[in-house]
């Protein structure tokens, strides 16, 4: 297990000119540990393991001040932590920027556009079939408790219609490097989800909205 010793860089506006391609790396974190498949992590007196971590990242844009300087070539990327390569998004970008914006999830306009392909292929397990709409984020974990039976936590967070449009728009200020590492610290989200009367949230509803906002707050630029 690799323990992260990291310093959060918040609201940093410094910029460095990129030389070649830029890579964005997404790193899931729980309780200061980098999350990897099939590993167990301590949580209070118990332990937890993650079976599934998948996120849609859409409309990645780079800004210098208020000016849009570059956009990612694909509209949407599916991050799947069972496939380490999907955590790294490569972008040919030589522009200077100090801010990145992106969406966590699939926007409403895309969701009503019929059958899509690529990262949005409905066969990838991130599309609800009993109703239309993408699962913006899928988090499945098991809590092993010494005092109680194990708890299955299933969070399929999605929803494209108001009042339960759970799409989240994020903006992160950053120091530009060749590889941007964005951490997704799931600790608070998991705590909140385990406190719910029901540990499964699998449709657009108030709990999905609350947890989606909390998940958006979990995205932070990691120190290089």
């Amino acid at each position: 297990m690799k323990k992260l010793v990291c310093i959060w860089l918040l609201f940093t506006s410094a910029s460095i000119k990129a030389q070649d391609s830029l890579y964005i790396k997404f790193v899931p974190i729980f309780n200061q540990f980098q999350v990897e498949p099939s590993q167990t992590y301590p949580y209070l007196k118990d332990s937890i393991s993650f079976q599934s971590l998948k996120f849609y990242i859409g409309h990645i844009q780079f800004f210098k001040g208020e000016v849009l300087v570059a956009s990612a070539p694909e509209t949407h990327y599916l991050l799947n932590f069972e496939e380490s390569t999907s955590q790294l998004i490569g972008l040919a970008n030589k522009k200077t920027f100090d801010r990145i914006s992106f969406e966590l999830g699939v926007d409403s306009a895309t969701t009503v556009s019929g059958a899509l392909s690529g990262a949005l292929d409905p066969s990838l397990g991130m599309y609800w079939t009993w109703q239309s709409g993408y699962i913006h984020a899928k988090i499945e974990a098991t809590l092993y408790s010494k005092e109680a039976q194990k708890t299955e936590l299933i969070l399929h967070l999605g929803g494209y219609k108001q009042p339960f449009n759970t799409l989240q728009k994020l903006q992160l200020s950053l120091v530009q490097t060749d590889t941007l590492s964005i951490g997704i610290d799931l600790t608070n989200l998991i705590s909140s989800a385990l406190a719910l009367p029901q540990n499964q949230v699998m449709s657009p509803k108030p709990e999905a909205l609350i947890l989606s906002k909390q998940l958006a707050n979990a995205f932070k630029i990691l120190a290089k």
Partner: peptide
């Protein structure tokens, strides 16, 4: 009205 576009309608019966 669960399905928003005819192109994704058949997903529902195929997977139900």
């Amino acid at each position: 009205g669960a399905i928003n576009h005819i192109e994704v309608q058949s997903l529902a019966p195929i997977t139900h």
